[in-house]
Design a protein around this nucleic acid. Sequence first.
DNA 1: TTGTAAGCGTTATCAC
DNA 2: GTGATAACGCTTACAA
Lengths: 370, 370
Amino acid sequence: MVRPTMEDVALRAGVSRALVSLVMRGSPKVSEMRRTAVLKAAEELGYSPHAMARSLASRTSTVLGVMVSDLHNAFFAEVVDGIDEVARDQGFDIIINTGGRSPARERRALESLLSFRPAGLILLSPVVPATAIGKAAEQLPIVLVARSSRVSTVDTVNDDGETGARLAVDHLVSLGHTRIAHLDGGEGTQAGPRRRGYVAAMEAHGLVPQVVSSEYTDAAGARAIRGLIADDALPTAILSCNDFNAVGAISALEDAGLRVPQDVSVVGYDNTSLAALRHVSLTTIDQPRAEFGRLAADALLQRVREERTEPVRHLLNPSLVVRSTTAPPATSRRSSGSLFLSTAGGDSAGSGGRTADFKAKSPERRSRDQ
Amino acid sequence: MVRPTMEDVALRAGVSRALVSLVMRGSPKVSEMRRTAVLKAAEELGYSPHAMARSLASRTSTVLGVMVSDLHNAFFAEVVDGIDEVARDQGFDIIINTGGRSPARERRALESLLSFRPAGLILLSPVVPATAIGKAAEQLPIVLVARSSRVSTVDTVNDDGETGARLAVDHLVSLGHTRIAHLDGGEGTQAGPRRRGYVAAMEAHGLVPQVVSSEYTDAAGARAIRGLIADDALPTAILSCNDFNAVGAISALEDAGLRVPQDVSVVGYDNTSLAALRHVSLTTIDQPRAEFGRLAADALLQRVREERTEPVRHLLNPSLVVRSTTAPPATSRRSSGSLFLSTAGGDSAGSGGRTADFKAKSPERRSRDQ
DNA sequence: TTGTAAGCGTTATCAC
DNA sequence: GTGATAACGCTTACAA
């Protein structure tokens, strides 16, 4: 259970430790004879370099830390793929840690990552306060993905949430919807642009925004819908803060006996692999996830190499992906529209009134895909 | 950009480095006065301990390495939750790396993890050859999750795949299916028990097993189905090697104009959160994922503390979760059953023959849930 | 081309 | 309680 050290290899190969070090790092100034001898000894001993000792001695690191706020969300897996691709390419390793969307746990994950003294850190949609990030940024280069920052030493990679939300609203309005609610992403800084874009787009169309507080999870999406139904304030269309939230919303709608998109249209955000599944087939806003990862890694490595000191703010253009969860509002719905226009609710007719006949007339959901 | 060291803290607090070390490790034998002074200096400097230097000096590690074979699969996220819970509880940190199900990349991820000299390693469904694992096991304690091993220094946590597969087959047979194919997990050692359980259960029912080569991804599931359709060898029920594969299979079936479960029943394996989504609503085999993680971390920490040298082989009982992707085989199907019983295929009538009438008679899918 | 020696930031073992 | 001092495994001038 005790790993061999460079000393062991040197002894066995009959050379000095320094020579072994040179060989391990592929230095050209080692005779072929010694090199093979060292390599052979290392092989026989099962030696592999001690990254920590190496980093300690060289005062450099070839490790990039990645903090994934939520491992359950496939969105981040694709970003990590992009990061990993670039990092590997440039001879860097990555270590991942997760905070499970809990600020306390994330803080600890961050501390843990930092304790390894990586060359830099990429934070995927962190939930810790900006001050914590600012403090960390004093110690090493940091790139934020899916979260904005004003700190000039921090680079950011985001999608243009305002544009994305506008795309979604425009799509729903063009289908004929006038009552469109937004299930808000809450505290996440990413939620701000989306909310603003939603509000602006609604107002641009002369419609009344309806922002419902929610979170980036399916459970939260379901909860928000149940709340809307209880308050009798359910609109004909929903713009969720992300795909998870949207899928939760759809579940809750179906639990309540409502059909998507016949009774209520739902738009997600992120276009995760989840959304592309035929049985979800979610209309959503696509973000170039792997590209996020690549750009983040590129930006970080530029900082690591001190090739740049000015902050970069990547703002990637999202795009609308129309699938099967959006359709024109039901005509039966429209005829009783006045009932639904009261934001206060209180009239219990809101979520009732659907008939079997109505369902039968609805278009097949899957026929809308592709 | 230069992180403060213990020396800096000592200087600022007017004490020796050793005293700072004692304070940082929470030693009781430090006067309250000095302790607060040191803590204050550390806070002001933004000091945090250097894990690598600490581990190097103490010849111990409080880090557990976790290799996740596929970050896209939510199954592993839940296992990681379980690991993290136990690890945090016992004062250990975890670092994660991923191999993206590519043996080469996974090997590199393993090397990277090893280079940090963690106290132990948990491998979640690794795809590297057993010899690579055996070699690593000579250097530190290793626990395998969702993959078996005969190495006596390696602990394993698995579900009882034979039982799980049998549960699925029994369920399908009880619904009236006689032609049930298994989309096989390929090389993964986890696939073996499931395949064996499937074959044994089929034979126990006097049915002919049909094992189709596939993999643990949705793309592979879809590919397998397309192959079956092309070969005209599509059965009335499918047992996938995991949920992802099942969802891919369902997509391909729907792409081909077939309906699930009316035309073909599909059973997944793992009961990931994906399966629970209403729009997937996948009948599947549940594994206690977080429990996997907890047991794995417990086993690993026992080895780390040298409390045990005998290998442990956890074999957890899976259970059947019936949702909406399984139903009795269609009667129209059965009447033309002879067409489907030829494994060779060649008769192109296989995937045709469904009518609007047939669809209309099918039960509402969601009505089967709960 | 190879070896020597001085760190890197920490812990651990002693004395004081 | 507190403070030197020697490791830990490695890199890196600098010498040879």
